[in-house]
Nucleic acid binder design. Structure first.
Length: 188
DNA sequence: GGCATGATGGCCT
DNA sequence: GGCCATCATGCCA
């Protein structure tokens, strides 16, 4: 996967990332849930323009934007669309594939369906933290491979936000048991 | 199953 | 000072 893949609107990238395989130092799995955000979007960190915290969102596409939320959890985004639009895709859930034992140890949980079923959980499982903020996801320790087979993608409302709740920019593999929450949208 | 709550840090008004 | 793109736990039904 090349940086050009990410140089598109976040909503398109978010959809196309479903089924892609993401690992950090060989630990990870298939992306099954994402959300798109951009600078026009009141729910986005980039909505009010660049700040120290959200600076990576206004940088080159294909880089990581990692932030801390509620003081304890990390969330992992991939920056999209150059031209300073402040867009990114939040990775919300993975289907664990590689390094299950490592993820279980980091999470303190053994059930596969709970290792990466949420943005904070997958960061803990893959050991993603502020160290990787701004790092290109197209180079080690990241590995990111496009989906190899067609995936049924559903979309619906995003989770955990209080504004722009009508913007249906959450994408997920239909019927996957590895989601943070069940999908209620329509098949795309 | 659902709902309430605490942990805990940086950013914004 | 208040607000979060969260998670785990505990209580009640």
């Amino acid at each position: 996967m090349t940086p050009a893949f990410f140089d598109r609107p976040a909503e398109a990238v978010a959809r196309d990332l479903i089924g892609a395989v993401l690992t950090v130092d060989g630990v990870g799995g298939r992306i099954v849930e994402t959300e798109a955000y951009d600078g026009e979007d009141p729910a986005s960190h980039s909505y009010r323009g660049p700040t120290m915290r959200n600076a990576p969102m206004f940088g080159p596409p294909g880089r990581a934007y990692v932030y801390r939320i509620y003081g304890l959890h990390s969330c992992f985004n991939i920056v999209c669309d150059a031209a300073g639009s402040g867009s990114a895709v939040l990775i919300r859930a993975l289907q664990p594939m590689e390094g299950l034992d490592v993820m279980q140890a980091r999470r303190g949980v053994s059930a596969r369906a709970q290792l990466c079923s949420g943005p904070g959980k997958l960061c803990q499982a893959l050991a993603i933290d502020a160290r990787l903020n701004g790092a290109p996801v197209t180079a080690p320790p990241f590995r990111l491979g496009a989906a190899t087979e067609p995936v049924k993608v559903a979309h619906g409302r995003r989770i955990g936000i209080s504004v722009a709740v009508e913007t249906p920019w959450r994408f997920a593999e239909a019927g996957s048991p590895f989601l943070s929450r069940p999908m209620q949208g329509k098949i795309a």
